[in-house]
Nucleic acid binder design. Structure first.
Lengths: 364, 364
DNA sequence: CTGTTAGCGCATTCAT
DNA sequence: ATGAATGCGCTAACAG
């Protein structure tokens, strides 16, 4: 069916090994035969068989990306980015969807090593530490977005403490004193870290922490709806809400729409993690950008480095493991407005006056 | 590093071939050794090496899905669905993103066959017909969502004529006479088909076709914005807009928001292809559901069938190729309202009164 | 620099 | 029912 190395060798009247050497460019062949073979191979339409090569070399040119889903915009971006990067390098991406589920993650992992993947980037559930640790001995692994505390894997994280700090500070600078926070589950790193950034910003500004303004919950729209209602029903409702739980954004928007709350006039809204439609929404939604694309790129960089560290036989480079942070970035659009020295929410009309603060960071 | 068949055979004091036969369950071994081998294999943690197996059998347990992007909600759903289905069957999904670009599609295709994929589901650009046709001889292929007219590949399509008809008829039944249509490029199947459905519904209702109400354009938000403005600026603007170009939806929503057009009071809006946030939006957006999940499932079904048709040596089953259609479905939410016998748009207050028409179809 | 030989892990044909 | 032998396509020792 397809033309093999043998065919090429035969056509060129050399041995298979010479053909192999010439085509893989090991420099162990004469310049001339090298060129000749390349030409003949091209003419014959020879394509090396990765399976056969893999059997011999133990490599597959396959790299896996394991994410929770494709609904989350950040994961979409990451998948697209990782695929693009890898393809350019001659690797194929194996995209897996783990659903943030322990069992699924575990199953997927074994399947992947069965297929002798050359590398793995995953958003860990954090519940398969032992397995991951074991796998890490055989294949380079980079954790993305979440850390698996039971392992000492190289990890690329968003700078959530900073992002939340940045966002909160922005709202404070706009004059907001009562800032509602809707944040993720506190048993996740990002949930905790974002809360901490919020707390720090308030503390720095000398604003007392008010527990009733904080709502933590699962990563689903309902969390936003519930949280938002809770906040709005407060005796003294917040003048701004920081939705640091991406999935919750939908719920918040629904509730504000249902209650005819005009954003940003009656309420400032700042969200976390961009989505394509945020800037098409009216008002365009201001966000803290977690840098999904950069995260993906950095993860690929780190993975590649470890992959050829391993290739060079320098151990699996498992020492010197470190954690990377991709800085967050504030993207000001039209959903936050400056508030007068007044204390209450629901004040009135003035149009959003964005401050000049556009902090951009990329400590890597 | 990992335990091989030889190890198992050795431990069981049988030959490798016996071990192989027992574990692959060819029924050519005694019940007893079969069980014994299975047990030993499990104890040793044996995992067959797909690479080695693949080299021998010419199969890889890899199935590729090639889509244009992951931004489009339908593609997300399809990717998730295909991955889930395949995983359950012991296949790994190779997700590729082609960007609706001829070159990328072509490159990807060659890489994929290099990897000896067992099957391929793709949304074709329609520009690599020759290549696809050639590949189809080696590997089962199913086209999804779009047809590649230069080939005679099995194809699973959405029933766009019916979907557009359904949507348009719905608006007509609500009393709308002037219905704007924003639709995709007319050099794509879906673009043409959706237009035709719209036309048919109008014709049936005895409503004269008005070209100024139709705006066709690229699959980007800008198309929606431009189209929507054009429609609203008409001397006699439509009382309803049917956005049959998924990507254009964002643009339309922006423009209506900017112009403070209250939906559905001032304008009814019907969109094509669902997105998670449509039902969280206020008003929740009514849609024509193209059945992304069903499309994916059907494609997988067809692919599997062809895959084992090929396995069974019954040719590659390339005869009896046919086209499948997954029926569209109207999902009524709150963005369309019944309009009085009046003729003009921008009439007024009455709340949406959904008709009882909930056509559901699944001709398969 | 090149040809010969061996073997990666497995399935399968041919013997028994 | 089982074992021995062969080869999938390729790379890498090992010799020349």
């Amino acid at each position: 069916m397809s033309v093999t190395l043998k065919d090429v060798a035969h056509a060129a009247r050399v041995s298979v090994s010479t053909a192999s050497r010439a085509l893989t460019g090991t420099g162990l062949t004469s310049e001339r035969t090298q060129q000749r073979l390349t030409r003949i191979a091209r003419e014959l339409g020879y394509r090396p068989n990765p399976i056969a090569r893999g059997l011999k070399t133990g490599q597959s040119r396959l790299v896996a990306l394991l994410v929770h889903n494709l609904t989350n915009a950040s994961f979409q971006v990451m998948a697209e980015e990782v695929q693009a990067r890898l393809k350019a390098l001659g690797y194929q991406m194996l995209l897996c969807i783990g659903g943030d589920d322990q069992q699924q993650e575990s199953d997927t992992l074994t399947t992947l090593v069965d297929h002798r993947i050359d590398g793995l980037i995953l958003v860990p559930t954090g519940k398969n530490g032992a397995q991951l640790k074991a796998l890490a001995k055989d294949v380079p692994i980079v954790c993305l977005v979440r850390r698996d505390d039971a392992t000492d894997l190289e990890t690329v994280l968003a700078d959530d403490p900073q992002g939340a700090y940045l966002g909160t500070r922005h709202l404070i600078e706009l004059g907001h004193k009562r800032i509602g926070l809707i944040v993720g589950r506190q048993d996740t790193t990002s949930g905790r870290e974002r809360l901490s950034g919020y707390v720090r910003a308030l503390r720095e500004a000398g604003i007392a922490l008010d527990d009733t303004l904080i709502h933590a919950g699962h990563f689903v729209p309902e969390t936003g709806a519930t949280g938002c209602r809770k906040l709005l029903d407060l005796p003294r409702p917040p003048s701004a809400i920081f939705v640091a739980n991406h999935e919750a954004t939908l719920g918040v928007l629904r509730v504000t729409a249902e209650r005819n709350i005009v954003i940003p006039d009656n309420l400032s809204l700042l969200c976390y993690e961009d989505m394509p439609w945020f800037e098409w929404h009216r008002p365009a939604i201001s966000i803290v950008d977690n840098g999904a694309r950069d995260l993906a790129n950095l993860a690929v960089d780190r993975l590649l480095q470890r992959m050829d560290a391993k290739g060079n036989g320098k151990g699996n480079g498992n020492d010197g493991v470190r954690e990377y942070r991709v800085g967050a970035r504030l993207v000001q659009r039209d959903s936050c407005r400056r508030i007068d020295a007044a204390i209450s929410a629901r004040s009135g009309k003035p149009k959003s006056t964005p401050s000049k603060l556009s902090t951009k960071s990329a400590k890597v």
